[in-house]
Design a protein around this nucleic acid. Structure first.
Lengths: 113, 113
DNA sequence: TCAATGGTTAAGCAATGACTTTACTATTGG
DNA sequence: CCAATAGTAAAGTCATTGCTTAACCATTGA
């Protein structure tokens, strides 16, 4: 049984690579061509294109080719989805801490069942 | 030359797996034992422990063993680091859009009559 | 027209990831 | 004490990832 990855899988997977994060960092400053994205990275252009495909499949980056130049842009909405998942978990945890209050704070490490 | 992964690599990598995200979701509701984490997951306990090791190595989860029970807790600070990286990128992009908007607004102040 | 630029495609390879099974150890309730 | 519980460790398998090189195509500036 194969697992078909959903959007969050793809986005977090995409962000797990330092090269790809660098590309996103660059794109958050404004659109760029493939060669521009490749410039600071110590790898072949081919490898960069493959990373770009991962980013595109995840929805984090959108690209459009005009002439012989492919221009890449970040998709802040997608970034927002990943952000939301994390925020939701954190706030859930913090709400729980609030509910516990001072009285129970000392025993809050016991597993809840 | 091998690439030694930093904290962000490990955290996003950890969050890229749906099973591990489920574990984090469970833990954001409160601490749990390994078996409790395993319960909703369709895999061996051994596999769950391995996922747990990934989460622990990433800093997202802290565990402590008392007697024969290992109790797991999320580490909201780590979650916050991943959150921050994303937020920073998004706000950087949005600031850029704002600047662009101001520039265009300035252009449209040109006398139209 | 034609060479340089910008990117694409395919094949191949070593390393990593996500499991499994099997065997094992430590704790604990009765 | 002893069986059930809770987890651990090691080894093996198979798929996926992150590159590489090489050959290739389309656009463009001179």
């Amino acid at each position: 049984m194969l697992h078909q990855p959903d959007q969050l899988d793809l986005m977090f997977q995409a962000l797990a690579d330092p090269g790809r994060r660098l590309m996103v960092e660059r794109l958050s400053k404004g659109p760029a061509s493939v060669s521009q994205l490749a410039e600071p990275l110590d790898m072949s252009l081919s490898a960069v294109v493959q990373h770009l495909q991962v980013l595109e499949a995840s929805g984090l980056v959108r690209t459009e080719k005009v002439g012989r130049v492919r221009t890449c842009t970040i998709e802040p909405k997608a970034l927002g989805q990943a952000e939301k998942w994390i925020t939701d978990r954190r706030t859930q945890w913090e709400r729980r801490l609030d509910r516990l209050g001072e009285y129970l704070a000392g025993q809050s490490d016991k597993p809840t069942r």
